[in-house]
Design a protein around this nucleic acid. Sequence first.
DNA 1: GATGAATGAGTTTTCATTCAT
DNA 2: AATGAATGAAAACTCATTCAT
Lengths: 199, 199, 199, 199
Amino acid sequence: MQYSHTMGQRKTTPANRERIIQVAADLIRNNGIDNTTLADIAMAVGISKGTLYYYYATKGDLIFDVAERHMTNMTNRIFRWLESSGTSLPPRKVFRMVLDTVMHSKSRGLIHIYLLQEALTENPNLRKRFVEEYGRWRELIEEGLARIYRDSADHSAMAGVLLSTIDGLVLQRLIGVERLPIDSIAAFFESAVPPATPE
Amino acid sequence: MQYSHTMGQRKTTPANRERIIQVAADLIRNNGIDNTTLADIAMAVGISKGTLYYYYATKGDLIFDVAERHMTNMTNRIFRWLESSGTSLPPRKVFRMVLDTVMHSKSRGLIHIYLLQEALTENPNLRKRFVEEYGRWRELIEEGLARIYRDSADHSAMAGVLLSTIDGLVLQRLIGVERLPIDSIAAFFESAVPPATPE
Amino acid sequence: MQYSHTMGQRKTTPANRERIIQVAADLIRNNGIDNTTLADIAMAVGISKGTLYYYYATKGDLIFDVAERHMTNMTNRIFRWLESSGTSLPPRKVFRMVLDTVMHSKSRGLIHIYLLQEALTENPNLRKRFVEEYGRWRELIEEGLARIYRDSADHSAMAGVLLSTIDGLVLQRLIGVERLPIDSIAAFFESAVPPATPE
Amino acid sequence: MQYSHTMGQRKTTPANRERIIQVAADLIRNNGIDNTTLADIAMAVGISKGTLYYYYATKGDLIFDVAERHMTNMTNRIFRWLESSGTSLPPRKVFRMVLDTVMHSKSRGLIHIYLLQEALTENPNLRKRFVEEYGRWRELIEEGLARIYRDSADHSAMAGVLLSTIDGLVLQRLIGVERLPIDSIAAFFESAVPPATPE
DNA sequence: GATGAATGAGTTTTCATTCAT
DNA sequence: AATGAATGAAAACTCATTCAT
């Protein structure tokens, strides 16, 4: 209702789902999954617990959708990065950009960890989704590297390292490690020569 | 540390504490922190819940000690690696060794993530401890790199990347990402030339 | 009866009512009354919960109709038996027939018990209906016995026993008692001589 | 035993369990199982819901114990009847006694039905117990009949009928059928001649 | 006639924590 | 040191019912 800007909308349902996911994501970001109760979410959305149940049969189902949304956001973010990597920016800048982006979205990072945890302990389906998505992310990053270096070398290792490094840095960022040497890390990646490909 | 009230404790106490920590760590590894109840721990140790409270005033306190123990283990592990990096092994082997070690201790990795999560959401003190320890780990790794390369270049960036990569890889390993290209990642690190230091 | 507001109802209404009752009976048979939700029924019928409420103001009302239908079925069944008891079959066969019929309709039995329970705990009106109907059943059975024995003795006791036995056997059948000696029970009834009537 | 009048009692636990079962049985008798909440039971016993959980991990577990107790009571009752059947009372009186006993313990009957229902729909274990116990009851009744008739004829059919009749009569009693012809039913059983045994 | 949406009162269950002995 | 017993606050989930359209 409050977010239906368009006229032609038939049902309020999608809008409500949307709001629930959004609000739930916010609460989870701030308090973690376990500390976010369905009552909290319902109240924040402005509906009753019963209504929440009307939209989601289970807390797990809701979390799943929140995670789905989160992954989509991440993927989109990488896509945008991918486009910028085609430009003539020097590699170091491009790396710096990636790392910066990730680093500074502390909240994104936080929810990422929470959701991974949930996937690990409670929700096998969610875990499968994460595995899929991680695969996709690595491919995208690899493609980005190919554009940056404009060659056909095998960048899979670097892509793997880059992806892992990002997660690892996010983790450290979250727990509050200061002075993460982002600059020199970007430089490190720039300096790393792709292994000679026999091709 | 904070729980040793008297000096003259009978020796059973530390032994009991020891067992509690050990058992708690195991349970947490397998089920996560939230799915490990104090009743579970007490039963697995073979004592009553009441007795558990004799040793630990709070679940959080117990978790803290478990984490402390976990960090000590990690640090020791890195120490051992440090020693081996002084040998004349080619760098690639040394990198491979680090990554392997971490990769294959899936259970260590799991508990690491659980504890980080706890530190993040519930236990600020624990978070501080992690920050400290991450700092130490980076220094140790840096030192190891210095030994490997036998130079006085600044390896802090690489150390940062290595540490982050490890965490990131553990994360992916845990959620079940297959085909992590450990070998080529090790090669990648070997090939990475430390940035020229103006020093 | 109590729900037909107008005379000129379109013919779809009774048909819908019919389907609702049928479907509800099936679900109750399989899951019990408490485990059958209105949502289940609506979904199985292919209508919305709201529509269900158009036909039945209350879950209790629906159950009442289901019970009504069930009782009618039972009564009809006894009627059919009644007719067969006029034939020249030997009494033992006739008894065997009754018992068999009841025994083998396990599903009928189940719903019978569920509805009795409901009548007992939730629905006084339904209880009254059961009392009425039980009276009718006994009379019918008595009439059947008179036909079998072609005399004017008082068969009310035997009718009472027969009716009770049937319910009791159904109960045991339902909970899974094996080896119910139906044959010898039929023989037992045959051998039982009606008490000498001073008439 | 049940209220531990003895001095040597160690723990209060058995006494508490006892009270819980007792109180639960009462509430169930009056309201049915589904209408008896754990909160009701806890309040009636004078303990907290948490404490109730301390004694019974599950509502089903508690019901199971209530049922166990109920069955024991029934069995004891039959035992006592068994003893009296050895006396020189005329058979009719003995039958009358059984029926009367059962008839007049309306509350026993109610809980019996409730528990059967539970066994049927929710608790397979309980169902097995009932099957066992029904078998035992039939044997006991058979033994009683042998004593009454002081012969070695096969009374299993009559025992089966008697047991079923009792359940059936209880059922009718519960729903409020008036004028159950107990007297003539007793007479009916007396008049029933056991089938000639070729022995 | 029909329905999707919303609700709230209730239910079982969980579990860290306390405490008298 | 040790423990059994007790607790209460909270959490997820259920579902009959209502109602505007």
